[in-house]
Design a binder for these strands. Sequence first.
DNA 1: CTGTTAGCGCGTTCAT
DNA 2: ATGAACGCGCTAACAG
Lengths: 356, 356
Amino acid sequence: MPKFGNLVSLHEAKNWSRNMSTVTIKMLARELNLAISTVSRALMDSYEISPETKQKVTALAKQLNYQPNHYASSLRKQRSKTIAVIIPEISNNFFSHVINGIEAIAQEKNYHVLIYFTHENQQKEAEVIQHLLGGRVDGILMSLAGTTSSTMHLQPIMEQGLPIVFFDRISDTLNAPTVTTDDFESARHATRHLMDVGCRKIAYLSISPNLSIDCKRMHGFNQALQDKPGMAHSMMIPCSTDTNQNFERICQVLREEQPDGIFASVEKLAITSYHACAAVGLSIPKDVKILSFSNLETASLLNPSLTTIIQPAFDMGKSAATVLFHMLEKRKGRQWEQNTVIKSNMIIRNSTQIAV
Amino acid sequence: MPKFGNLVSLHEAKNWSRNMSTVTIKMLARELNLAISTVSRALMDSYEISPETKQKVTALAKQLNYQPNHYASSLRKQRSKTIAVIIPEISNNFFSHVINGIEAIAQEKNYHVLIYFTHENQQKEAEVIQHLLGGRVDGILMSLAGTTSSTMHLQPIMEQGLPIVFFDRISDTLNAPTVTTDDFESARHATRHLMDVGCRKIAYLSISPNLSIDCKRMHGFNQALQDKPGMAHSMMIPCSTDTNQNFERICQVLREEQPDGIFASVEKLAITSYHACAAVGLSIPKDVKILSFSNLETASLLNPSLTTIIQPAFDMGKSAATVLFHMLEKRKGRQWEQNTVIKSNMIIRNSTQIAV
DNA sequence: CTGTTAGCGCGTTCAT
DNA sequence: ATGAACGCGCTAACAG
């Protein structure tokens, strides 16, 4: 597939002294007849270096386009100014926005971001964690994989004292800061809304019973039904990460059970439902009303077909990162704050603009 | 906003010898009465270490949960098994998929991925590049910022010989491998389609004349109009990265110029157009037909309102990464292949299923 | 104010 | 088959 040419451009040596090897403080020191440490301190603008020397050093550094070696510095200082973000997948629009939020804060703090996808696979999740244990990052931001039931593989992190913040898909058995939205309350609220607009037979599409968000949303869903007993029937439809399979399953349910409402636990299932309705020949929202958590962009496209609970994904990313940096900065020895829980405000949005 | 508790769990020392400090080969060596170098070699499965010693070393390493220090090893080996991805923004759905593709290949090659957003800002772009010059990554995958007109800030990379591959938003003045889709041909083809279904006055929404994709698409657009002279009028509407501003601009155009077709250079502008039509009271595709490059997911939601050219974003990510790794592996000294151009096949999709 | 020294943790020479 | 020693590039303690 790739087609290679072989034009190798031969640039002339321009600004550097000898060959094109990368320039180090050692070279600067030699060039200026200074000690290595002096150059180092000059570059970090230490108070104990004379203005003239600083001037000379920074001038030469700029001229030679000196760039500090991040690996050497991280090794020496034992901190890397780098955090890791571990998420199930990014094709899910929700996580795109979260990452955006995280990166915004990281950029502000001059931190770097390593990104890892688990593809909803616990095995992969464990591998990534294992690698990160080697001191590669100062902290971790994480959202659990859908198949993750046990949290054994996270124990080393807790024991080693590596700062970690969970967001969205959290673990209740782990004693670590978490950032989530109020899934229970907004699911309850939105389900009530579905009933208010006439739904009497609602199908709940579950993505995975191992996911905290799924459980809480289902819980809120059930609570809403119990709040008004006898008002509506419910059905639990177990789905998976296999979209094609979900599609078939949903079509089948639509035909055989004929629900007039669908509560999709995650956005992807809502979109699949959207297509399933079209395939079966049902019109939205006339025949079937679909409810889901989703982001603003997708919601705007689907509106008014869907009752959408908009997740403040960008803000959640920012919040999670903020908590993590708080831990990093306050860290003394091996202790830091735990049990931080931020419940972001929910924005609920649909054709009739309900608010929570 | 954050609410902190202070439960600090005190875990007992379990498997390690002394305190909970991270375990190094030095400790393993001391524990086993071996030289550091022996342990090092045993862990990398060197042929000159006896099976018994290897056995003992790996056993203890596993027991103490030893993890090599990535920074030390990178410093020593002068390569980091890490690549950087520099993109304008990720909220743009297109880049989400690209990253997914990149990460898939990186994971396969056991590489790590640092991610940087330029937020369409050339200044930021330059800063990131500058940092990366310090030997932090083995290679770079990059898509240029919309405001980037000059490529001066990329010169040091070329001079230093840091492997880099551009994708999607490339620079024509830079002598580096690129991966793009065939923007000219597919834009031409799709525009022809617009005319075939009856459009006679088409507005082209330009995102930035500095962007290669914008130019090529506009070029293809114009070519299609020239192919059938007198068939349709065209209008050039300059847009920006400010969505609100774009919205107003498009509404104004819709009212005053009343085009019956819109060619949006990027997905975001298509969505904005979609909303603008709704605001002005025009129905899609009856009154106005919108054409755009977009990803499958968004396209599926907007179908059949939009004539969509689906970009193989995931594949583009994979291709770009593949080319980069090719460079990394073949690298000897400071030379490698240049001018690699992969033109991914385009998939064109809309209500009437046209193919290119 | 500046220089000397001593590592950070790992891989690689050179000896044995 | 194993050990001793050195250095990747940088920071920090300790002199002077």
